[in-house]
Computed example of a mutant assay.
Amino acid sequence: MSNTIAVVTGAGSGIGRAIALALAEQGDTVVVADLDLQAAEKTAAERPDRLFPMTVDVADRAQVDALRDRVTAEVGVANVLVNAAGWDRTDQFLNATTEFAEKVVAINYLGPVHMCSAFLPGMVEAGNGGRVVNLASDAGRVGSAGESIYAGAKGGVIALSKSLAREMARYRINVNCVCPGPTDTPLFQAQAEKLKEALVKAIPFRRLARPEEVAAPVLFFASESASFITGQVISVSGGLTMAG
């Protein structure tokens, strides 16, 4: 059994779900947080002894604070936070409305900001260190046509992770970042067929990542094996991007 209490956002499906299940499999207690409570409950049903479903809109700071209070009261003080919630829709920048841009930034950038702001004080006060793993995207490292606003938000997550790593080091709280490339998730499958085919052809391994393959480095960053690693960014893209 593990003493880890982890909170994973976006855990109702895709990469977040794979991360939550993998953490539970190694004995961690995991809060499965998602905007879609039914999806969170479906994930939690895989390991009801270790997984606790809760709902949250990460773009809403009041809901994030309510989640923190519920987690603390019902499960305990979290010492691992994984920000995996995300959203996007592929389109050209010139077609983007203000409403679309604000939604992308609110979920993909302000979501991690809200979650870190809500949960980090508890880790600091507990005095036992902690781990934060933010899910960004290779779009935030090298850019992505048709995803300019999303790429900007994810680039912000990368910079946020590095800056928080510097601030949190004194408290023995590690902050790292995982950048998935094209991954077989519901969000990817919602893209146009021609775009999906083009992306798969561009990947040297000629296939999409499986969510479990993205979960693997997240588990590493959340573990004691990464105790002296902070402020780092790793891509999981099958060689599509090889950022320095």
Rank of each mutant, 00 (worst) to 15 (best):
residue 1 M to I: 13
residue 5 I to P: 00
residue 30 V to I: 11
residue 31 V to G: 03
residue 32 V to N: 04
residue 35 L to C: 13
residue 35 L to T: 08
residue 35 L to R: 08
residue 37 L to F: 03
residue 39 A to I: 10
residue 46 E to L: 09
residue 49 D to H: 01
residue 57 D to I: 12
residue 58 V to Q: 00
residue 62 A to E: 07
residue 63 Q to P: 02
residue 68 R to S: 06
residue 75 V to P: 09
residue 80 V to D: 00
residue 81 L to A: 02
residue 84 A to D: 11
residue 85 A to C: 09
residue 88 D to L: 11
residue 90 T to Y: 13
residue 96 A to G: 03
residue 99 E to H: 11
residue 103 K to H: 05
residue 115 M to H: 01
residue 121 P to A: 04
residue 127 G to L: 10
residue 129 G to Q: 04
residue 129 G to I: 09
residue 130 G to H: 04
residue 131 R to K: 14
residue 133 V to F: 00
residue 157 V to Q: 02
residue 158 I to N: 03
residue 160 L to S: 12
residue 164 L to Y: 06
residue 166 R to W: 06
residue 166 R to C: 08
residue 169 A to Q: 04
residue 169 A to P: 12
residue 176 N to H: 04
residue 176 N to A: 05
residue 178 V to P: 03
residue 181 G to T: 12
residue 181 G to L: 13
residue 183 T to L: 12
residue 185 T to M: 07
residue 186 P to D: 15
residue 188 F to I: 10
residue 195 L to W: 09
residue 196 K to S: 11
residue 201 K to W: 06
residue 202 A to M: 14
residue 202 A to Y: 10
residue 215 A to L: 07
residue 215 A to M: 07
residue 218 V to W: 02
residue 221 F to G: 00
residue 226 A to Q: 05
residue 228 F to A: 13
residue 232 Q to N: 12
residue 236 V to W: 01
